[in-house]
Amino acid sequence: MLRRALLSSASPLHGRARIPRPSHSPIQALLPQWSRYASVASSSVPPQPPPPPPPSPPRGPSRSGDGGPTVSSLNPAEVAKFASIAETWWDSSGPFKPLHVMNPTRLSFIRSTLCRHFRRDPNSSKPLEGLKVIDVGCGGGILSEPLARMGATVTAIDAVDKNIKIASIHAASDPTTASIEYCCATAEELVKEKRLFDAVISLEVIEHVANPLEFCESLSALTVPNGATVVSTINRSMRAYATAIVAAEYILRWLPRGTHEWSKLVTPEELVLMLQKASVSVEEMVGFVYNPLSGEWSLSDDISVNYIAFGVKKSEASSTNGREASLS
C-alpha cells in the first residue's frame, strides 16, 4: 500500500501539476472528503466511486492482535488525506505552506509560555534543554525540528507511517534534529505504555481526530503533573469558515480542498472544557491572525479563526503516574 502511494504520487500526472477535474462546489466539499484524497493518492483514473478504505493505516501495536480499541482518536479517512500529500511536507510553498508560514509565530508562543512555566531563561538559545517534549501528530516534523533546536528532547508521533519516514529522513540531515525520536503511533498507544512528558504539544491535529474528548484525555495522560499541554486548532465560527476554509482551501489554494471539515472543528470554549475534563487547566489562549499585506502571521487576542491554548496538567490528578519524567 505504502509503495503504491509513493509511486503514484511520484508520477508526473500528480505532483503539483493540476489535473483538470470536474469542479466541486463548496457545498460538496463539506461532505466527507476522504474519497477525493484517496483518488489523488491511488491512481490517475478520474473520479471513481469511493475507493476502498484508505492506504497506510498505522502499523501500531494495536493492529497486531492484542485487540484493545486503542485507536479511538484515529479517523481513517483523515489519515488517508495526510498520507496522500506526505511527500510535500517540506515544500514551503506546497500544501503545508500555511504551517510553514505560521511556524515562527506559534513557536514564539510556545517558547514564551514554556520558558515562563518551566522558569527558563528566555534569552537562551536552547531554553528547552532537558525538557522531554512530545509532538503529537507531528506530520513531517515542521514543529518537531525547531523544538529540538531549542534544546528539547523530542519524541514525535504521527498516525501516518509515511509522514514519520519523511520526518525522520529530513531530521537526519542536521545533527541537532537527528536525535528526535520519531514513531508511527497514536497518542493512545503511548498512553498504554505509560510514557510521560514534561510538555505535550499537538498543533492542528484535534480537528482531524475521531473523538476530540478522548484525544484530550490522551494528551493529558501523557503529561506529567504540573507539566504543560499545548493545543492549537481552527475555530468553528463563521469567520473561520470564511477565512480558513473557503479562502485557504478554495480561493488561495493553500490547502488541498477538504482538509477541514466544518462539523469537526472545535471552538475555544469546547477545547477549554474538554481539557478541563481531562485535568488540564488552560491558562493562556491567543489567536493567530494573518496579514495578507505582509504575508506574515502574528499573535492576537482574536481567537475567531486560528487559536492556540496553553494549559497545565493538574498536579493532584494522578500521583500514580509518577512525577519523574525529567523535571529538574
Binding site: 502499523r59 501500531g60 501495536p61 497486531s64 507511517d161 514519520i164 520526518a167 525522520s168 529522513i169 531530521a171 537526519a172 545533527p175 534534529t177 537527528a178 536525535s179 528526535i180 525520536e181 520519531y182 514513531c183 508511527c184 503511533a185 498507544e189
Partner: peptide, 10 residues
Amino acid sequence: SRRRCFAAAA
C-alpha cells in the same frame, strides 16, 4: 519493539 520507531540519526 514492534512499532516502526527510529531515532532519526539511526
